[in-house]
């Protein structure tokens, strides 16, 4: 792996020397200035690429590393995304959990228990609800500015096949729910390869995407869900 942080864009010259001394006095890491700018540029490229996506599908392997368990948990599934923020996640085979963002709400469906949870899109003040949305949306930002307002780039590294970004939620409130977000993006096409969410308790959830399809035809019904009559519908954010 070629860490970008080993390169420096600083050359000799009195002006630059004085900047260097100033930076040393202020404790600023000179080498990371250039490195971060490269990583930030790469992240911008990815964000720009994401904003151009109309639809996107992929298979996903979700790996969860929990402190209380001796071995990681793994689940397989599929993801559909449509600009600007519609998505559908299906986890498990046969499906155990389905998350669909419809026009007005997020539905989390548990087919085995014939249970549907409804979360109104307008109400994102509940912390648990924010966590669920972050988990599902972090890899699909449709608005680069909004993404930059929510996440701060900590570092970016590059190897022969991918960029790896480490980001941190900017809001302290968000940091209490989500410690870090890691994104893995392919070098050439800036295609999302994986997302990794690090929670404050140290547990990690990694979504590894494969068999990507960019702008495929996606049936509009994909982002809706016909709730069967035998399903129990609950609204967890409402009191009884």
């Amino acid at each position: 792996m070629n860490r970008l942080t080993t390169r420096t864009g600083v050359s000799s010259g009195r002006g630059l020397l004085s900047i260097g001394i100033l930076c040393l006095l202020l404790g600023l890491p000179l080498r990371s200035i250039a490195a971060d700018s490269r990583a930030a540029g790469a992240l911008d490229n990815w964000l720009e690429q994401q904003s151009r996506i109309k639809t996107w599908t992929a298979d996903v392997v979700q790996v969860r590393k929990l402190k209380s368990l001796a071995r990681p948990l793994e689940a397989r599934g599929k993801v559909w995304f449509a600009h600007p923020n519609r998505f559908r996640w299906v986890m498990g085979d046969p499906p155990r959990t389905i998350a669909v963002r419809t026009r007005e709400q997020l539905l989390v469906i548990y087919p085995r228990f014939k249970r549907v949870e409804q979360y109104p899109i307008g109400d994102v003040s509940n912390p648990a609800w924010k966590q669920v949305l972050a988990l599902l949306e972090v890899g699909f930002p449709s608005d680069a500015d909004a993404f930059r307002e929510r996440y701060e780039l900590l570092s970016g590294t590059k190897d022969h096949e991918a960029w790896r970004f480490e980001l941190q939620p900017i809001e302290k409130e968000a940091q209490r729910l989500l410690k870090q977000v890691r994104l893995e993006v392919s070098l050439e096409a800036y295609v999302l390869r994986a997302t990794e969410l690090v929670f404050p308790d140290g547990s990690i959830m990694r979504n590894q995407f494969s068999r990507h399809r960019l702008n495929p035809e996606v049936s509009p019904g994909t982002f809706d869900y016909d709730i069967g009559e035998d399903y129990k519908v609950v609204q967890p954010l409402r009191s009884k």
């Binding site: 402190k67 948990l73 689940a75 498990g92 155990r96 989390v108 669920v132 929670f199 547990s203």
Partner: peptide
């Protein structure tokens, strides 16, 4: 319980079931 932890979309539920 293990399967629920593997497929749940709610981090809080996963954290709770992990103990």
């Amino acid at each position: 319980t293990i399967e629920r932890m593997a497929t749940s979309l709610q981090p809080q539920e996963v954290a709770r079931l992990s103990y």
